[in-house]
Design a protein around this nucleic acid. Structure first.
Length: 940
RNA sequence: GCCGGAGUGGCGGAAUUGGUAUACGCGCGCGACUCAAAAUCGCGUCUCGCAAGGGAUGAGAGUUCAAGUCUCUCCUCCGGCACCA
């Protein structure tokens, strides 16, 4: 019979489906629930690579599966068509960006069709079309009216090569994300969007989203919310004060100086009082010259003291010096910090360089070995970090103690006969460090609670800890004897008991915590006082109390900045703003939208916007608004275009609204959004903001658009590296499709591993052939059909495959079909009904081939309109069970029993089994465990 | 440094969620068909051992009748953030 000719089959069905409008989606279908599955619309780069296949063809498998399950599935596609590459092509090739973009889109549409994806092309959205950007502009104006858009002078990232402003997100390691050129800082007026107003909601609402943790965590990091305190440090003999931001108000006793960022305003206003104003100004100017990159890269801390001024520590009225240093950033917090060198690594570095005082905080906080001072400690070996032992006489740190003391003791067998594990550890401390001036304290009372705070780890509340407490003895005293150093006291306490076990003694200590398995948990050092003020407080509570005591306030600060959307570029959505002769801002009224992008421009970049050279745009503005009126000549960041495109798919031809309420009600929120991990902190965050803003303006009825989001990884070259021309490891999908067919490529991509994880898979040229072999075997079965009924084999497969599909584990779905086929191969023939079931299971993966086979066996209606198979529960049940018999957890043999056999009988049979008898004879059977349908374990 | 994710054969990866570790595919080896090759089919393929059996899921410990899976201490790799106070 006929061979599997993928070329013929795929071409044939693609055009048939199109003729029949098989994938046309109605907004409502009687008896079906709607399912909106979205993938990120694509940039029209003009050539489909393997990444596109992975992004669109694999989700298509899921869309088809959902459709067969009886959902009315919307799976649309469109083009994110504005952006730099079109404009660069215009500059390079002298082409019209619009024409260039359309050519690219035509190529891509043809390639996308070759995937056999079930897109409804009638709903296509193209962001550079006036019908689309009219609504981008309309939304911009809505935001403007509601104070979500403003114009401001800000420091912007400027790419000298692309001659444009970049968003923070587009700067990677101080370089332009696109061209790799080093980014410069410029002050420029531009249009800003108040995304920071939504920072809290963008973080807090993540909790309610069924998204993977990795995505949520990345967004939280990106927004970077920190809770801390703002505290005023008055400047002596002036009316001014310095507002500092700190997350460690509890260390305020340790402040030895205050630092301002070089950009800080205060310097100007106090100029006259600064004795060394020349030096100060020189330092500020020198810093300005340094680029952002230089500033970050320079390891050495620099700064200058502001002489003639002193700040006053509000907790104890101590006078401290004021410094300017560029390790303090103007854009974060208040641009000023209180320096606590004993408890902050950066302050410590700075203090050391300029010989500033390093003062320990005397309060009952238990300091973990995170202390920056540990840097000074001798590291004895690779496996050794330290508990800190300090000489109280001069405050110098004497030595470190084995961090892994107990582990070490165990591993090296360091414990001698008759010696307690802990004793052994202690002896090793002496031997390894040579310091003998340690004494174990009897029944110490310490602020151990902070231990838990510093660990930031939830530790099993029931776990018991054995603590050892070493007191530090002044060297002038007699070293204690070995006998004395033996363990006096081992107390077991639960975490809750430890938390309550708080009162304060004076002294210095080293602490080891050992869990109830004798395992080492923690080592730390600290200073204790009898300060009553913070008795019983943990660090967090201490912070609050101190902040209050000095008249400060608890504030939140964010890493996220407002979103600058102005671009000095041609190929983008024109910002619908005009200026009257006085220079006042006016939005272009709705009736003049879309505010068309003019075509009479020279694209050559010179740092100004190409639109400034459009006569048509200026004429149009004057004609509509009057003489002297001028148009805005900037265009929008393309992330604005992509922030709302998923609404437009629903109603792409609507002339009166961006989408009708009914259509949005029918489809939103999106059930599943699959996309690239690279968009986690950009498009995904911007669009979440956009949707929330639209929600607040009552334009949409959900404040989150994506119910489920899955990120995908990359397809790597066969060598395991990212595909790149320079590496010569690029796989061209068109060639493989030509050779093996679209069905094979789709299916291979699904077979590589689970979908929807940020995991990269290398393309294996042999692996893809394996999938093709499988399809050919399915093909050949069409000649081995017979009458008959379905068996348990296929029903088990249906169950397993259906379950795996729900979790996007297409790889195991496929392997299940392969297992099925391997079984079939052992048979002379298979029932036609079974074959039909397999074809249906395979249809989402290999839509063309299954459609062809479906029609070859005489079916008239498309296989893609068939219902997903259901498994027959009764047929899955086996009447014999295979049970494993274990002895002491080791598998010894296997038996078959009737499935209705009772537990006692099964146990009896197992004990009487001839393979088992030698294993259990002469021994007492202590227990027999039966796990239903799985195994019997005999414990002897 | 902080926050996420992950470590299982030569490779991509499975493992009914604590119950027969290594499914399925690739690769490799042997064989069949063939004058030959390709394709196809069959058998084998974690490791030590002739075998009986033993040992392996990054390392070490713990809980359990039973651990890839749970707990703890580490190590390594990938991703995000980072002079962010």
């Amino acid at each position: 019979m006929k061979n599997y000719d993928h070329k013929k089959i795929e071409k044939k069905w693609q055009s048939t489906w199109e003729d029949q409008a098989l994938y046309k989606v109605e907004d409502k279908v009687e008896g079906k629930d709607n399912f909106y599955q979205l993938v990120e619309f694509t940039y029209p780069s003009g050539n489909l690579h393997v990444g596109h296949w992975y992004a669109f063809a694999v989700p298509d498998i899921f869309a088809r599966y959902k459709r067969m399950q009886g959902y009315n599935v919307l799976y649309p596609m469109g083009f994110d068509a504005f952006g730099l590459p079109a404009e660069n092509a215009a500059i390079k090739l002298g082409a019209d960006p619009k024409v260039w973009t359309h050519t690219q889109m035509d190529t891509m549409r043809a390639q996308l069709r070759s995937m056999g994806a079930s897109f409804d092309w009638d709903r296509e959205v193209v962001s550079c079309e006036p019908e689309y950007y009219k609504w981008t502009q309309w939304l911009f104006n809505q935001f403007l009216k509601n104070d979500l858009v403003y114009r401001d002078i800000t420091k912007v990232n400027w790419c000298p090569k692309d001659q444009t402003i970049l968003a923070n997100e587009q700067v990677v390691d101080g370089k332009c994300e696109r061209c790799g050129e080093e980014v410069e800082q410029r002050n420029q007026e531009q249009w800003m969007i108040r995304i920071t107003k939504y920072a809290d909601r963008l973080i807090d609402d993540l909790d309610g989203l069924a998204w993977p943790d990795e995505i949520k965590a990345a967004q939280r990091n990106w927004i970077g919310r920190t809770e801390g305190s703002e505290i005023d440090f008055k400047i002596k003999d002036t009316s001014e004060s310095i507002k500092v931001f700190t997350t460690r108000a509890d260390t305020i006793y340790g402040v030895t100086y205050v630092v301002l960022a070089p950009e800080h305003d205060l310097i100007k206003s106090l100029e006259s009082k600064i004795e060394n104003i020349k030096d100060v100004e020189k330092y500020i100017n020198d810093t300005k010259k340094k680029s952002e990159l230089d500033r970050k890269q320079s390891k050495e801390k620099t700064g200058v003291e502001v002489k003639g001024l002193k700040a006053i520590n509000p907790i104890n009225n101590e006078e401290v010096s004021i410094w300017i240093a560029d390790y303090v950033l103007s854009g974060y917090g208040t641009g000023a910090v209180m320096a606590v060198p004993a408890h902050d690594e950066r302050d410590y570095e700075f203090a050391k360089k300029y010989n500033l005082e390093i003062k320990r905080v005397i309060e009952p906080v238990f300091f973990s070995s995170d202390s920056p001072l540990k840097k000074d400690l001798p590291i004895i070996s690779r496996n050794c970090v330290c508990a800190i032992i300090r000489n109280p006489k001069d405050g110098k740190y004497l030595c470190s103690v084995w961090r892994d003391i107990l582990m070490h003791g165990l591993i090296t067998g360091g414990i001698e006969e008759g010696e307690d594990m802990v004793e052994g550890a202690l002896r090793e401390i002496y031997e390894e460090t040579g310091y003998k001036n340690l004494k174990l304290v009897n029944n110490p009372e310490v602020a151990i609670h902070s231990f838990f705070f510093h660990r930031k780890k939830e530790i099993n509340r029931e776990a018991k800890f054995n603590y050892l407490f070493f007191d530090l003895i002044n060297e002038e005293q007699d070293p204690i004897s070995e006998e004395e150093a033996a363990i006096h006291d081992v107390v077991w306490k639960t975490r809750d008991e430890l938390n309550n076990f708080f009162s304060v003694i004076e002294g210095e200590f080293v602490l080891l915590l050992i869990d109830n398995n004798g395992q080492y948990m923690f080592t730390g050092e600290g200073i204790l006082t009898n300060s009553k003020d913070f008795n019983g407080l943990n660090s967090e509570e201490a912070r609050e109390k101190i902040t209050k005591a000095v008249g400060g306030k608890i504030v939140k600060t964010y890493r996220l900045r407002d979103w600058g959307i102005s671009r000095q570029r041609y190929w983008g959505c024109p910002i619908p703003i005009v200026y009257d002769p006085e220079g006042k801002v006016h939005p272009v009224p709705d009736e003049h939208l879309p505010w068309i992008l003019p075509t009479d421009v020279d694209h050559t970049p010179d740092g100004t916007s190409p639109l400034a050279r459009s006569k048509e745009l200026f004429d149009r503005t004057e004609k509509i608004f009057g003489k002297g009126w001028k148009p805005e000549v900037e265009t929008m960041d393309t992330f604005v275009d992509s922030s709302w495109y998923f609404y437009r798919y629903l109603d792409n031809k609507n002339k009166d609204e961006f989408a009708s309420k009914e259509r949005m009600k029918a489809w939103m929120p999106i059930d599943l959004y699959m996309g690239g991990a690279e968009h986690t902190t950009m498009h995904l965050l911007y669009s979440r903001f956009w949707v929330k803003a639209m929600y607040d303006l009552k334009l949409v009825s959900d404040d989150e658009a994506y119910k489920v989001r899955r990120n995908r990884g990359l397809i790597l070259g066969p060598d395991g590296n990212k595909m790149s021309k320079s590496k010569g490891n690029v796989i061209n999908p068109d060639e493989i499709v030509d050779l093996l067919g679209a069905d094979t490529v789709r299916m291979y991509l699904a077979f590589m591993g689970p979908y929807g994880l940020t995991v990269n898979y290398p393309w294996d040229p042999n692996g893809v052939v394996g999938v093709r072999r499988f399809l050919e075997r399915v093909w050949r079965f069409k000649d081995k059909l017979s009458e008959g009924t379905t068996t348990s084999l296929i029903h088990k497969a249906i169950k397993k495959i259906s379950e795996d599909m729900e979790e996007y584990k297409f790889n195991t779905s496929i392997s299940q079909m392969m297992i099925l086929l391997n079984e079939w191969d052992k048979q002379e023939s298979i029932a036609k009904d079974e074959y039909k079931l397999l074809l249906k299971l395979l249809a989402p993966f290999a839509p063309h081939m299954t459609e062809e086979l479906w029609s070859l066996i005489g079916e008239k209606e498309s296989i893609h309109l068939q219902a997903w198979p259901k498994w027959d529960k009764d047929k899955i049940v086996d009447n014999t069970l295979k049970l494993v018999i274990q002895v002491n957890g080791k598998v010894r043999t296997e038996i078959s029993v009737e499935s209705d056999k009772g537990e006692e009988d099964i146990k009896k049979e197992a004990l009487a089994n001839e393979v088992i008898i030698p294993w259990i004879k002469d021994k007492e059977v202590k227990r027999v465990i039966y796990v239903k349908g799985r195994l019997i374990n005999i414990v002897v």
